[in-house]
Design a protein around this nucleic acid. Structure first.
Length: 626
DNA sequence: CAGTGAGCGAGCTTCCGCTTGACTT
């Protein structure tokens, strides 16, 4: 029998290739591109500004082999289906591959949003061409990032130090951290006082806090006010004036996406984003489980969508019914809304097989892997369970002109919290009392408090903020944090991210000279343009030209400004108040007081006083290129 | 680790986003 030529399907991830190959059988060959195969050259700008921003694409170092294999497979294939992810970057990957393999007559583009047999077969029935407008939106994104990054970084080399970097994403992340630090430094704590009464009725004691005086809500009480009220309350009676009972339903949170997984793994286990992603990758690729062989445990871990495949929804609902009973199962599936900025290329992060419980895996996979799997599993199961029900009671208690408030809350039905405990709130029980009841006064307390500055960013809260502003992508959140630490802009002190003097100088220089790019809303407005390009409303070169007209002017001005300023830094000497300036010694650059030799204060650029774990001089040299 | 530019000059550093190994230690 004559052997039929196979059809070739090209996806991005090798694990995905394996799964699809398993679904489709022998008539298809499935190969992976492992992400992008072509890009702008690393060692130069690679964008010809005079020729309408013509990009120069080269094959990415190390991808020659992949491309050669794809080319060979394409040549002998019956048809070629480009099945890279259904988003902007995926479209560009398909385009680059199509251009390289050079068999246009038998090349098609297919897209699918979930990796199921049916979705793939459906996609194969509807082959399309490459959406060049989507590709163009990627080109605009890529070229803009290159223009910004490769123009700003050299400015920093000239002005501050070699090897520094700046870019649309990392520099805004740095700015957030620096702004927060400034807020903390400038924060002046304000004193205020609280008055609380410990009251009793029958066998129950509870605490009520003063919140109104003569029917007016109080602001912060001063010490004198508090003492005055405290005196007046001495020996007075307390009556229950108003009772308000409410039932609160607390819904479960949606299943994980990359950013929320990183946040929760940090919160519960203290994992860095890098560690979380490394473990998640292994859970996705599959782990050798004794008795089962290699098993993929979770869906794709780089996603910004909370969408769940229908079959997974069915499984989890029958699991909940079987395990916890119908009282925990909503009558119809809980629905969640994916962020409007998502391109919805992948599902939410969930267990591949919900029937494989964390208990089944205990002792069979490494403990950190189990922890993360359990977190993902619990979050997913909980997301399809009923809300928790809380009975809340509010007492308004009067004593003359003074009104106190006490809030009780009792968990009536645990619902999803049976599986995912996202709160440690304990029950607060108020007595069963009717309006008019007099309470026993056990104690009246006045306590001193101070307003607190906002907390420093942690890795998790920074990523949360970046995601909310649409800055960065699931595949880059972990590396954004690594980059600003590796550059010496930021140090990690336990969980907090603290800017170094270097980081603050870089941030300040960039904000002063490039306020638009350093604004947190810059990426959002870029995305609007990219959307218009993808819709065919504007040309990508027009859009970039538009941006570059003002950017190049800013660049020129900044270049002049920076050359004028001599060894400028925005930091002040904490000993004498004079500006600190950049100096060079045989060990490298450092900061010195400009009042030298009267003031001999110095500090190193990339360390924060009192923080041990700054860069220890390792990795300072340049990495050798392959 | 401590510390206050200046011989000359070539060559290097860098972005964001997509994906895994192939390398050392």
């Amino acid at each position: 029998m004559k052997r039929r030529k196979k059809d070739l399907i090209i996806v991005e991830s090798p694990s995905k290739a394996k799964t699809i190959s398993h679904y489709l059988g022998d008539s298809y060959e499935v190969k992976a591109s492992m992400g992008h195969v072509k890009d702008l050259p690393a060692n130069k700008m690679g964008v010809n500004i005079e020729r309408d921003f013509e990009p120069e694409y080269v094959i990415i170092k190390g991808k020659e082999k992949v491309l050669k294999e794809l080319k060979k497979a394409a040549k002998s294939a019956n048809k070629v289906y480009l099945a890279s992810d259904p988003d902007r970057e995926g479209e560009a990957i398909a385009w680059h591959i199509a251009n390289e393999i050079g068999v246009p007559d038998k090349t098609f583009r297919i897209v699918f949003h979930e990796i199921t047999k049916r979705a793939i077969e459906e996609a194969l029935k509807n082959p399309e061409g490459i959406d060049i407008r989507k590709v163009d939106s990627q080109q605009a994104r890529r070229v803009l990032d290159r223009l910004v990054g490769y123009s700003l970084s050299p400015l920093l080399w000239r002005r501050i130090d070699k090897g520094l970097s700046a870019g649309r994403v990392q520099s805004v992340a740095l700015k957030l951290i620096c702004d927060r630090e400034k807020e903390i430094e400038e924060f002046v704590p304000e004193e205020y006082w609280k008055i609380e009464a410990l009251l009793g009725y029958e066998n129950t004691n509870f605490v009520a806090e003063l919140f109104k005086v003569k029917g007016e809500k109080i602001q912060r009480l001063s010490k004198d006010e508090a003492e005055d009220i405290f005196k007046r309350l001495n020996g007075q009676s307390f009556f229950l004036d108003k009772v308000e009972k409410k039932q609160k339903k607390v819904k479960p949170k949606p299943p994980f996406i990359t950013s929320t997984l990183q946040q929760e793994a940090f919160k519960f286990f203290g994992f860095t984003s890098k560690k979380t992603m490394m473990i998640a990758q292994q859970l996705y690729e599959g782990i050798d489980i004794p008795g089962k062989g290699y098993t993929a445990l979770i869906t794709y871990m780089r996603t910004d969508s909370v969408r769940v495949a229908d079959h997974a929804l069915k499984s989890v609902r029958s699991f909940i019914k079987k395990r916890f009973g119908t009282s925990y199962l909503p009558s119809k599936p809980n629905e969640y809304k994916t962020s409007s900025s998502s391109q919805d290329a992948h599902e939410a992060i969930r267990p591949v097989n919900v029937d494989l419980t964390p208990d089944d895996l205990r002792g069979k996979i490494p403990s950190d892997h189990l922890k993360l799997y359990e977190l993902i599993w619990r979050r997913f199961v909980a997301s399809q369970m009923k809300p928790a029900v809380i009975d809340s009671t509010i007492f308004e208690i009067k004593s003359g002109d003074y009104t106190f408030k006490a809030t009780g809350s009792v968990l009536k039905f645990e619902g999803y919290r049976k599986v995912y405990e996202d709160t440690k709130d304990k029950d607060v029980v108020l007595p069963e009392a009717s309006e008019g009841t007099e309470f026993t006064v056990l104690e009246i307390k006045k306590t001193q408090h101070f307003t607190k500055p906002p907390p420093r960013y942690t890795e998790a809260s920074l990523i949360k903020t970046l995601e909310e502003k649409g800055i960065g992508r699931p595949s880059t959140y972990a590396t954004i944090v690594s980059t600003i630490i590796d550059r010496g802009y930021v140090v990690r002190d336990k969980k907090a991210l603290i800017p170094t003097p270097l980081g603050r100088i870089v941030s300040e220089v960039l904000v002063r000279n490039f306020p638009k790019i350093m604004d947190v809303s810059f990426t959002a407005s870029m995305e609007e343009d990219l959307d218009r390009i993808a819709k065919g409303e504007i040309q990508w070169r027009e859009s970039i030209k538009n941006f570059y007209m003002s950017f190049s002017k800013e660049l020129e001005k900044a270049s002049e400004n920076l050359m004028k300023l001599d060894n400028y830094s925005p930091l002040k000497c904490e000993k004498c108040g004079s500006p600190m300036v950049l100096r060079k010694s045989k060990y490298g650059k450092f900061l010195a007081c400009s009042a030298y030799p009267k003031c001999r204060n110095v500090k190193s650029l990339n360390q924060v006083e009192g923080v041990k774990n700054g860069r220890k001089g390792k990795n300072k040299g340049y990495k050798k290129r392959a």
